[in-house]
């Protein structure tokens, strides 16, 4: 093994965005090439350091090589783009047909999201999987909010000595479930941020609108027994159309390679969409409250970018893990 090459390949792997098996193969193949080149240069009389420097310089910058390889291995077909947008078509239908009020239909939608996420995960995490995963993650989010609501109401009832709807053991179960659902959300997010924070942002895209919607359901009673008259059927259609607009983002994320374009689209499209959706959600709708909501929502979407430095590819922990990972692959080569 030529240890001096590890640093170069580690840099290359930091910019590769492939499934782990493919990534392993690619790093190993790059290493064998560089190792052969270094050996030939040493045989031609170069020192080890000079040989490594010349071999890596001839190979190209790690960023450029990694980007070209990621581009080749990513599937940017229209089929994949439409598959990525499909959950947004589903949520559009749920709102346009007022089916979000039907628990069976919501369960069908969320179950399909979970199944599609698992299929995607099993098939090497293609880009179309992330929007589905975002909707699948609504399950811990929605159930967590319901659990918080139940604990709040019935916990207060218990403390005041009033009769509570939920038995004590179930309340205890819900208390345990709340941190568990939070843990589930956070651990999946960290995994995705480590792959690509931009995909984590794409996953979070439906969260602000649907969280606000869920909270307004809680405000109007509870998520399962709310006051239906508070919800304007015409507002459903507006929210449905907002999701239809947001469906353009997963399509763009699959079809376009340039990251600045993706980031720009995310920043430009989401605040107005969030404001329109929030305006049509029951609750306060003063301008400052809507603007604050849009700002907070944008912060949530950009949170993965900030966390990338702490837990993602930009973090020192990830880099040292990556170095060990590269060394292990190369020792097998």
């Amino acid at each position: 093994m030529v240890p001096e090459l590890v640093r170069y390949l580690e840099d290359l792997s930091l910019h590769l965005r492939l499934n782990p098996l493919r990534e392993r193969q690619v790093i190993r193949e790059m290493y064998t090439h560089l190792e052969d080149r270094v050996r030939d240069l040493e045989e031609a009389g170069r020192s080890r350091d000079l040989a490594v420097a010349e071999a890596t310089s001839k190979f190209g910058t790690p960023v450029a090589v990694a980007q070209e390889l990621s581009h080749v291995h990513s599937d940017r077909s229209w089929g994949n783009a439409l598959l990525a947008a499909a959950p947004y078509a589903g949520i559009f239908l749920l709102f346009a047909l007022h089916a979000w009020q039907s628990l069976p239909w919501v369960c069908v939608f969320l179950s399909v999201s979970v199944v599609m996420t698992l299929i995607g995960w099993w098939r090497g995490k293609p880009q179309w999987m992330y929007p589905w995963a975002g909707f699948a993650l609504l399950i811990p989010m929605v159930t967590g909010i319901i659990a918080i609501g139940a604990v709040w109401k019935d916990g207060n009832a218990y403390l005041n000595g009033d009769p509570a709807k939920v038995p004590g053991w179930a309340l205890l179960g819900l208390l345990i479930y709340i941190p568990f659902s939070l843990w589930m959300l956070i651990s999946v997010m960290i995994k995705v941020i480590r792959f690509d924070w931009l995909m984590a942002s794409l996953m979070l895209l439906p969260f602000p609108i649907l969280t606000r919607w869920m909270l307004s359901l809680q405000f109007e009673g509870s998520a399962l027994a709310y006051n239906r008259t508070a919800f304007n059927p015409e507002a459903d259609l507006v929210v449905a159309l907002v999701f239809l607009v947001l469906a353009a983002l997963p399509v763009l994320f699959v079809r376009i390679q340039q990251r600045p374009v993706k980031i720009g689209a995310l920043i430009l499209v989401t605040p107005p969409s969030f404001i329109v959706a929030a305006y049509n959600t029951p609750g306060k709708s003063e301008f400052w409250a809507l603007a604050l909501f849009a700002l907070l929502a944008l912060v949530v979407l950009m949170l993965p970018a900030l966390l990338d430095r702490r837990v993602g590819r930009g973090s020192s922990g990830y880099r040292s893990n990556r170095a060990r990972w590269a060394e292990q692959i190369l020792s097998d080569a």
């Binding site: 690619v26 193949e29 790059m30 090439h33 080149r37 001839k58 190979f59 190209g60 450029a64 090589v65 070209e68 390889l69 581009h71 080749v72 291995h73």
Partner: peptide
């Protein structure tokens, strides 16, 4: 060649 560009070409042909 800029040797690193060979592999994207090979992988594209393989794909």
């Amino acid at each position: 060649f800029r040797e690193g560009t060979l592999y994207p070409a090979l992988h594209r042909l393989e794909k």
